[in-house]
C-alpha cells in the first residue's frame, strides 16, 4: 500500500477532557469546603485582638498581615469568606427555587400566567441591580436576613427565563407528544421526560448564581446596606480597611479582595465544568 496522507489528527490529551473537567470540579468543591470549614473554625482567632501585633506587614506568622487591632487578617478573611459562602448558598438556593417555580409556571399554565411572569421578570431586570438590592435590604432592616432576601429576590429572572425556554422546548419535542398519544399520563411524562431534561440546566444555573450572590452580598455590605459590623463578612472587612488604605496598609484590602475574587472564580469554575460535563453539545470534546 502507498503512503497515506494524514489530513486531520485528533490528538488525544493524556487526561481526557471529561476527567479534566471532573478534576476541576472536585478541586473547586474541595477548596470551597476548606474555606468554609476553616473559616468557621477561625471564629476565635479572627476576633482575638493583640496589642503587641498591630499593623504588621504580611509575614510567615501572619501571611495576610494584621490589622489596627492586631487581629490576624488571614483568619478574618477566611471567617469573612465562610460567612459570605453561607449567605451565597442560602440566597442562591432561594433564588433558584424561585426561578424554577416561576419558569415552569410561565411555560405550563397558558398565555396569561406567562405574560404576568414575563412582566415580573422585566420589572426586576429593568431596575438597576444594585439599587434593587439596596432598597430591599434596607426595607428588610439590613443584616443577614435582609441581604439573603435581597440577593434572592433580585437574581432569579435570568434562570427563570432559561427554565421557561427549556420547558417550552421540551413540551414541543415530538417524543413528548408521542408519549402522550401512547396514553402516558401527564405526571409520568413530566417525571420521565421533562425533569431529566430540565434538572441539569437548573443545577448549573443554580451554581452559577453563587458568584453573583457572593459578590453582591459583599457589595451591599461594603456600601453599608448589608451585614452589620458584628458579622464580619468580607464586605465589612473591605469597607473597614478603606480607612486605613491611606495610611499605607495595603494588605488590609489587597488580600481579602484577592481571596474574594478567587472564591468567586472557583464557583464559576465549578459551574462551568459541571455544565460541560452534562451539556450534550460539548459532550464529545
Amino acid at each position: 500500500m502507498t503512503d497515506i496522507t494524514i489530513l486531520q489528527q485528533y490528538k488525544k490529551p493524556r487526561l481526557n477532557q471529561r476527567h479534566k473537567t471532573l478534576i476541576y470540579f472536585i478541586f473547586a468543591v474541595v477548596l470551597l469546603l476548606c474555606i468554609a470549614i476553616s473559616g468557621s473554625l477561625m471564629g476565635e482567632i479572627a476576633i482575638t485582638t493583640r496589642s503587641d501585633a498591630k499593623n504588621l506587614l504580611p509575614s510567615m506568622a501572619h501571611p495576610f498581615g494584621t490589622d489596627w487591632l492586631g487581629r490576624d487578617m488571614l483568619a478574618r478573611t477566611l471567617k469573612g469568606l465562610s460567612i459570605s459562602i453561607v449567605i451565597g448558598i442560602l440566597a442562591s438556593v432561594i433564588s433558584a427555587i424561585l426561578a424554577g417555580i416561576l419558569g415552569v409556571l410561565a411555560a405550563s399554565f397558558g398565555k396569561k400566567t406567562d405574560a404576568v411572569i414575563e412582566f415580573l421578570i422585566n420589572v426586576v431586570l429593568g431596575i438597576p441591580h444594585l439599587l434593587l438590592l439596596l432598597l430591599i435590604s434596607y426595607a428588610l432592616g439590613k443584616g443577614m436576613f435582609g441581604v439573603v432576601i435581597a440577593v434572592a429576590v433580585s437574581h432569579w429572572p435570568m434562570l427563570a427565563r432559561v427554565i421557561r425556554g427549556e420547558v417550552l422546548a421540551i413540551k414541543e419535542a415530538p417524543y413528548v407528544k408521542i408519549a402522550k398519544k401512547l396514553g402516558q399520563h401527564n405526571l409520568k411524562i413530566a417525571r420521565k421526560h421533562m425533569l431529566p431534561h430540565i434538572f441539569p440546566q437548573f443545577l448549573v444555573g443554580f451554581i452559577l448564581l453563587f458568584p453573583h450572590a457572593v459578590l453582591h452580598e459583599a457589595a451591599l455590605t461594603f456600601l453599608g446596606f448589608g451585614l452589620k459590623p458584628e458579622q464580619p463578612g468580607i464586605g465589612i472587612i473591605l469597607s473597614e480597611s478603606m480607612k486605613y488604605l491611606s495610611l499605607g496598609m495595603w494588605w488590609l484590602a489587597v488580600f481579602p479582595g484577592l481571596a474574594l475574587l478567587s472564591t468567586v472564580l472557583l464557583f464559576d469554575l465549578m459551574g462551568s465544568s459541571l455544565r460541560s460535563l452534562i451539556d450534550p453539545h460539548s459532550a464529545n470534546k
Binding site: A173, P174, Y175, V176, I178, A179, K181, L182, G183, Q184, K192, H193, P196, H197, P280
Partner: peptide, 27 residues
C-alpha cells in the same frame, strides 16, 4: 391511548435520547 397513531418523518426526534429504547417502547 390514541387509536390514530402517527409515524414522524424524523425518527431521531421521535425518541427521547436519554432513554434506552426498551423504556421508550414500554410507554
Amino acid at each position: 391511548y390514541h387509536p390514530v397513531q402517527m409515524i414522524w418523518q424524523h425518527p431521531e426526534t421521535s425518541v427521547n435520547p436519554r432513554l434506552r429504547l426498551k423504556e421508550t417502547i414500554a410507554e
